[in-house]
Computed example of a mutant assay.
Amino acid sequence: MGGLGVEEAYSEAVTAHRAVLDLLDGESAPGWHATVLRDLGDAQSLIAMLVVLGRACRRLGTLNGEGRADGAGR
C-alpha cells in the first residue's frame, strides 16, 4: 500500500477506531463496541492478506524470470 501513496492509511484508521472505542462504553453499547472491534480485526486481516499476496506475486515474478513482480525487470 505504501507505493499507492497511502503509507499512513492503516495507522490513521487504527487511531480513528481507538478514538471511537474511547467514546463508547462497552457495557452500555456492547453492539457498537463489538462492531468497532470487528472492523479493526477486518482491517488487520486485510493487511495480512495483502502481505501474503504481495509475497506470492514476488515469488511468481521470480519463477517466471522477471526481475520484479510487476514485470519492470524485463
Results as ranks from 00 to 15, higher is better:
M1G: 14
G2R: 08
G3A: 14
L4D: 04
V6M: 03
V6H: 15
V6I: 12
E8N: 11
E8V: 04
E8Y: 10
A9V: 08
A9Q: 01
Y10S: 03
Y10M: 11
S11D: 11
E12F: 15
A13Q: 09
V14L: 10
T15I: 07
T15V: 03
T15A: 11
A16I: 02
R18H: 03
A19Q: 10
V20P: 00
L23C: 03
L24D: 03
G26T: 12
G26E: 04
G26H: 02
E27I: 13
S28W: 13
S28P: 04
S28Q: 07
P30W: 09
G31E: 15
G31W: 07
H33D: 04
L37F: 00
L37Q: 02
R38N: 04
D39A: 09
D39W: 06
L40R: 09
L40V: 13
G41C: 07
G41P: 00
A43L: 11
Q44L: 13
Q44T: 08
S45C: 06
L46W: 14
L46N: 15
I47T: 13
I47P: 00
I47S: 02
M49I: 14
V51W: 02
G54W: 12
R55A: 05
R55D: 05
A56L: 11
C57F: 15
C57V: 12
C57G: 09
R58C: 03
R59Y: 00
L60R: 09
L63V: 14
N64I: 01
G65Q: 08
E66W: 09
G67Y: 06
G67S: 11
D70L: 07
G71S: 11
G71M: 02
A72G: 12
A72F: 03
G73P: 01
